[in-house]
Amino acid sequence: MTSASPPVADASVVPAPPSRSLGAWGLDILIWGGVAALLIYSFEAVDLANLSRLVTNSANLQNFAADLLRPNFTDWRLFVEKMWETVQIALWGTFLAVFLAVPMGLAAARNIAPGWVVQPVRWVMNMLRSIPDLVIGLLFVVAVGLGPLAGVLAITLNTAGVLAKLFSEAVESIDKGPVEGVRATGGSRLQEIVWGVIPQVAPLWTSFALYRFESNSRSATVLGLIGAGGIGQVLFDRMNAFAFRDVSAVVIVVVVAVTLIDLLSQAMRKRLL
Rank of each mutant, 00 (worst) to 15 (best):
S3F: 04
P6D: 15
P7A: 15
V8A: 12
A9C: 09
D10L: 11
P17R: 15
P17E: 13
S21Y: 06
D28F: 07
G33I: 03
A36N: 08
S42R: 09
E44R: 03
A45C: 06
R53Y: 13
V55P: 12
A66I: 10
R70S: 11
N72F: 07
F73D: 06
D75I: 14
D75G: 13
F79C: 11
V80D: 01
W84F: 13
E85T: 02
Q88G: 00
Q88H: 09
L91I: 04
G93M: 14
V102A: 07
M104T: 10
A107W: 05
A108L: 04
R110N: 02
A113S: 15
W116G: 14
V117E: 12
Q119R: 10
R122K: 15
M125N: 12
N126T: 06
I131N: 02
I136P: 00
G137R: 02
G137D: 02
V141R: 01
G145I: 08
G145K: 01
L149V: 08
A150L: 14
V152Y: 01
L157D: 12
N158I: 11
T159F: 12
T159C: 12
T159N: 11
G161Y: 14
K165L: 13
S168Y: 14
S168N: 15
V171P: 09
I174C: 01
G181T: 03
A184H: 01
G187N: 01
E192Q: 06
I193R: 06
W195R: 07
V197E: 04
P199W: 00
S207T: 01
A209Q: 09
E214W: 02
E214K: 05
N216G: 07
T221S: 09
G229W: 03
Q233M: 13
V234G: 00
V234S: 08
R245D: 02
A249N: 07
V250H: 08
V255A: 06
V258K: 10
I261H: 05
I261A: 06
L264E: 00
L264Q: 06
Q266P: 05
M268A: 15
M268K: 12
R269I: 05
R269G: 03
